[in-house]
Nucleic acid binder design. Structure first.
Lengths: 333, 333
DNA sequence: TCTATTGGTTGGAGCGCTCCAATGCTGTAG
DNA sequence: CTACAGCATTGGAGCGCTCCAACCAATAGA
């Protein structure tokens, strides 16, 4: 269980430690003869460089820290894919940590990540207070995904939630719907823009907005529908705050003997893998998740390389994915 | 962007660097006066210890590496929760890396994780060849989750897939089903035990097993059902290899005008969050995922502390979760 | 022949920390 | 008044590496 060091490799190859270091870093100023000798010795010993010692000595890091607020949400998996792609391309590694949706645990995750002195940090939809973020930003570059910030040292990548909601409403209106309710995400991240977009779009079409307070879960979606039914206020179409909420809504509608989309159309948000399941086949708003990750990584690396000091605010365009939960009111013609 | 060091804290508090080190490690042999002075100085400077320097100097690590083969699968999120719980309790941090389901990328993730010289590694359902694992196991303790191994330095945590399948079949048989098919997971991890358990259980009930080759996706589940229908060989109940497959199967059944569970019962496997959605409400087999994580972390920490050298093979009992996709043949009475 | 230049190689210092032996400082016993 | 615990505190060495200035041929130019 004792790992060989550079010194071991050096003595085995009959060269100095510094030369091994050069080989390991792929320096061109090493003769072919020595290089192969060193690589052979390293191979035989099963040597691999000690990343921490390296980063300590060089006072640089080739590690990007990624804090995922909720590992249970597949949304983030794709963002991580995008980050990983760009990071690897540019010779960086990523380490991930999770906040488990709790501010306290997230704070701990942040500290843990920072204790590795990564070159920078990408936070996916963090729930810690803004002050914690700006404090961390004094120590290293930070990029926020799916959360906005006014701090000038922090870059952000978001989807345009207003536009997404607008796309959904335009789609429903073009199908002929006039009574469209929004089941909103309350305090959740991105719930605000989506709600605003809904209101704006409705008003643009001369229709009265109707907001029902809800949450980002299927249980909440179902509850909201039941309360609409109880109030005898069921619209012909629903825009949910996310896919889970939409699925809950559909389920409650079906329980009440209503058919989707014949009696009520439903649109989700996020285009999770759930929405794509044939069994669900939910019309929803797609966000370019991998692109989020790529842009976040690129923004971070620009800061790391000190190529930029001005903050960047990416606002990506969502798109509408039409599946089988929307149809003209009264059913498909 | 320059972080304070122990030296900075020491001079600010008017003590030596070694004393600061003692305070940071919570040593009892520090006077209360100095302790508060040091903590105050650290707070003012925004100091936090450099994990890498610490681990380099102490030749120990308080980090556990976790390799998640597929971040998209929420299954692993809960396992990570379990790992995190135990690790934190015992003063360890975790860092996560993902293999993106590709052996090459997974190998890279493994190397990256190892370059931090963690105290040990937990691999969640790795797809790299066994040789890569046993090679890594020479360098540090390794625990495998949802994958078995014969290497004596490697501990494993698995669910008893045979028993899970048996539970499902017993349930279906007790409802009165006699013609029960299994949509199997092909080469996928854990597909073998599930298939074996299905065959054993069927034979135990004196029923002929019927295996349909499929995969761990909803598309494959739907395809398998269509082929059964085309062959006019539709049974009264289906045991799918996992929940996704089951949802695909249900969807294909409904497309064919059949009702679940009235005409055909369907059982999934894994009890993913998908299965719990009201809209799906799938009868399925639950694995104690958080328990997987806890046991894996405990096994690893035992190795780390050199409390044990014998391998441990945890085989956990799955359980049946009855929801709304199973009923007696001919529908609920 | 002597000096420059170039390409390859090396030892030493130091990154931020831990660990250890040594030191200073009480307070108590002899 | 000395001796000696016992405790709090400290300087120095060293973890595995990088970086830098210095060094050493070997070749090229004057």
């Amino acid at each position: 269980m004792v790992r060989p060091t550079m010194e071991d490799v050096a003595s085995r190859a009959g060269v100095s430690r510094a030369l091994v270091s050069l080989v390991m870093r792929g320096s061109p100023k090493v003769s072919e003869m020595r290089r192969t000798a060193v690589l052979k010795a390293a191979e035989e010993l099963g040597y691999s460089p000690h990343a921490m010692a390296r980063s300590l000595a060089s006072r640089t890091s080739t590690v990007l820290g990624v804090m995922v607020s909720d590992l249970h949400n597949a949304f983030f998996a794709e963002v991580v894919d995008g980050i990983d792609e760009v990071a690897r391309e540019q010779g960086f590694d990523i380490i991930i940590n999770t906040g488990g949706r709790s501010p306290a645990r997230e704070r701990r995750a942040l500290e843990s990540l920072q204790s590795f002195r990564p070159a920078g940090l990408i936070l996916l939809s963090p729930v810690v207070p803004a002050t914690a973020i700006s404090k961390a930003a004094e120590q290293l570059p930070i990029v926020l995904v799916a959360r906005s910030s006014r701090v000038s040292t922090v870059d952000t990548v978001n989807d345009d939630g207003e536009q997404g909601a607008r796309l959904a409403i335009d789609h429903l209106v073009s199908l002929g719907h006039k009574r469209i309710a929004h089941l909103d995400g309350g305090e959740g991240t991105q719930a605000g823009p989506r709600r605003r977009g809904y209101v704006t779009a409705m008003e643009a079409h001369g229709l009265p907005p109707r907001i029902v307070t809800s949450e980002y879960t299927d249980v909440a979606g179902a509850r909201a529908i039941r309360s609409l039914i109880a109030d005898d206020a069921l619209p012909t179409a629903i825009l949910s705050c996310n896919d889970f909420n939409a699925v809950g809504a559909i389920s409650a509608l079906e329980d009440a003997g209503l058919r989707v989309p014949q009696d009520v159309s439903v649109v989700g948000y996020d285009n999770t893998s759930l929405a794509a399941l044939r069994h669900v086949s939910l019309t929803t708003i797609d966000q370019p998740r991998a692109e989020f990750g790529r842009l976040a990584a690129e923004a971070l690396l620009q800061r790391v390389r000190e190529e930029r000091t001005e903050p960047v605010r990416h606002l990506l365009n969502p798109s509408l994915v039409v599946r089988n939960t929307t149809a003209p009111p009264g059913g498909p013609r």
